[in-house]
Each structure stands twice: as C-alpha cells, then as structure tokens.
C-alpha cells in the first residue's frame, strides 16, 4: 500500500495536528510513514504545507503531480498546491463556495461545535467518508483520542464525526 497526501492551509489552522493524526494511523497499523511540515516564520499566518508519504518511501517531499489526495484547509491555497496532486487525485476542500473537488464548509460546521480551528478534523471526516484516505473511521478515532489534549477529545471527535456525513 502506498499513498501520498498533502495537507495545505495557513499557520494556525491545525495543519500540523491533522498531519500527525493521519501519520499516527499509519504507525498504529504498522505501515511506514514519512511526513514533512512547515515550522518557524511560515507558521505566522502564512501558507503552510504538510506532506505525508505512506508505505515504502525514503523521503517525505512529494513531487509535482504525484499526490493522491489533498486536504485543503484554506481554499485560496488550491492554486498554489493543486499542481502537486495527480490530475485524477482527490481534492477535499474547506470552502463555502462552489468549484473543483469535494467541498465542505468545515469552518462553519466547526464554529457550530465551538471552534473554527476544528475544520481540520471535519475535513478528515469527509475524506474518510469519501474513502479517499487509507484510514478507517475507527483508526482515526483512536489516533485523535491519542493525540488530542484530554480536555478536548470530545470536541475533536465531534468535529471528525460531523465530517463523516
């Protein structure tokens, strides 16, 4: 099994957390995983990109046109990172407007749960629902439970579940 995934957003949207959840699922299932993340200056509200390579890979970066799936938390980033994804790859986009790919207003749904930043897990839910990722619902729930701060596990799971529809 091999899968290449990009997670795109801006600093502060929880791109890193979403990346860690997906990577944790791979670890729990015993599949090799490599990720790369943006830290430092870029995290101050600028465009950030994480890449995940699941399966037998040596390096974390993804070449243009090779990603199978993109989770896009900031829809203006689509123009920046679309080229990384295969032409027939799956795009899951946090957006209130119509356009290319599977779109869901994750921020609005997450606001309803109490925190706009949880749009990241709404998107994960939708990706799992669309069977775009190698992960199952149960595996994601386990990973979220492991990684979320204990106080917020319930809220995090609620966001994830709300994307599963």
């Amino acid at each position: 099994m091999k899968q290449q995934i990009v997670v795109s957003g801006i600093g502060g949207q929880g791109v890193l957390f979403l990346t860690r959840v997906i990577a944790q699922v791979a670890v729990d299932r015993g599949i090799p995983v490599l990720t790369s993340e943006s830290h430092g200056m870029a995290q101050r509200g600028g465009t950030v990109l994480s890449t995940l390579k699941i399966g037998n890979f040596a390096a974390p970066l993804i070449r243009t046109g090779q990603a199978d799936v993109a989770l896009v938390l900031w829809d203006a980033n689509l123009k920046v990172h679309r080229s990384l994804v295969k032409k027939d790859g799956t795009l899951i986009i946090n957006s209130a407007t119509a356009g290319e790919g599977e779109r869901i207003d994750g921020s609005e749904i997450a606001r309803g749960i109490g925190k706009a930043v949880l749009a990241n897990l709404v998107l994960l839910g939708r990706a799992v629902h669309k069977e775009a990722l190698f992960c199952t619902r149960e595996e994601c729930i386990n990973a979220i439970t492991k990684l979320a701060p204990p106080k917020f596990i319930g809220q995090n799971l609620a966001a994830f579940e709300s994307g599963l529809k």
Partner: peptide
Amino acid sequence: AEEIAPPAGKGQRPSLC
C-alpha cells in the same frame, strides 16, 4: 522528461498574529 506544471499562484505571506 514529463513537463512539470508550475503552481498557479503564490501562497499567503506570513504576518504578525
């Protein structure tokens, strides 16, 4: 070599929180 499609746009610059 296949042609490498360039990104169609630039990302958002960082700013103070």
